[in-house]
Amino acid sequence: MLTVEKTIRWLNLFGQKVEEKKVYLSELDQAIGDGDHGTNMARGTAAMKTVLEQKAYDTVQDVLKTAGMALLSKIGGASGPLYGSAFIGMAKQAGEGAADVSAILEAGLEGIRKRGNAEAGDKTMVDVWLPAVDAVKNKELSRERIDEWVKATEPMKAKKGRASYLGERSIGHMDPGAVSSGLLFESMIEEGVLDE
């Protein structure tokens, strides 16, 4: 179940992990994209941290929406609108009730798919979000499984985003968006968001 405090702790831990992995994320993006995923994500999550500290929040919906707008406007590129859509989608669902984390995450996934039109196997963040939402539903999300889904993007051929222009040459590299999404789900586990 999500509470205001828990949601903020989750998002701040995500931001901390992004900052720690900033160089690594950009290196991954260098291989198959434009090389700025780490810098962009770190800028976005830093802006998110700042707005979350600026005032007191009454609802989970409010936290998620504010976070989403910060990510949308500060990450830039394709990840800005994708993470923005995820969080704005989650915020809407949280307005219906913050107890059902799996419904909230499902709304986030819906936001991403609507924005990017990616499907399973396209070598995008959807390849982590899709199984993760399922696992949360069945109460079996774990660090090991997140790692597996992230690594599974390595042999895939990109069908969406800048990497898709590379065709076959996109094979053999992990998708940076899948890696950063993995950090988001890892942070969920570590902050106990999924505990009853």
Partner: peptide, 11 residues
Amino acid sequence: DLGSSKMNLDM
């Protein structure tokens, strides 16, 4: 021009 321009435009 390219993909992410459209996503930002959509939003």
